[in-house]
Design a binder for these strands. Sequence first.
DNA 1: GAGTTGGTTAGTCATATTGCTAAGTATTGA
DNA 2: TCAATACTTAGCAATATGACTAACCAACTC
Lengths: 113, 113
Amino acid sequence: MTNQLDNFFSALADPTRRAVVERLTQGPAAVSALHDGHDMALPTFLRHLKVLEESGLVTSTKKGRVRTVHIEAAPLRILDDWLARHRDLWDARLDRLTRLAEAMEESDADDPI
Amino acid sequence: MTNQLDNFFSALADPTRRAVVERLTQGPAAVSALHDGHDMALPTFLRHLKVLEESGLVTSTKKGRVRTVHIEAAPLRILDDWLARHRDLWDARLDRLTRLAEAMEESDADDPI
DNA sequence: GAGTTGGTTAGTCATATTGCTAAGTATTGA
DNA sequence: TCAATACTTAGCAATATGACTAACCAACTC
């Protein structure tokens, strides 16, 4: 019953993994290149990559001894859609509140304290 | 060094908590009302609310014995900005790939197999 | 073919997360 | 005032997460 969104959000909850995703938006990169600059043992870093890959946010292919990691488009779209949906609801709510505030102001004008 | 985004993303990684956020986009609600429909002991559910509140995604106020929970706008904006930033980068990358593909098609036309 | 490079596997440890029950507090309503 | 309602706290158990080291394999490079 675990949603795809569960995996996307929890994958992105870690700063190391977000950094990897950010880096990958600029193009694919090898594991060791991605690891560079992260003060963390390689096996630990690899676990993060595995989490990203299992979530579907990235894919990877191995050629020779080099594994190259690529970002996936679809998940970003799904995340975006979720957020967009709630952005809309929020905006609608804001509108209602605005109208309410206006209505209250009017009624204040009609019938002050 | 934990980013605000860490908390937003990990708070939203749980389906129960996402459901609460979705519900709250329609307006504030009391704890017991929010709990309704979630097959989960109340203390467990309260823990989820606490996570949401500590992340800053929601706030709550207590009046009498009823605690009312409200959604916060700012975090959704921050999340949206992060995603938008990467949507842009991704789009840019897509554009580059598209141009590359076109270039390759052209060179194929010039010099087929 | 010996060493180096790039990644992988296995195993351990500490802490965090997510669920529970049991028991408590504080309002509110009869 | 007594009982019901609406949380709240405390404490426990199981699993997940994030870090490490040590040891390993596979593919280049000399």
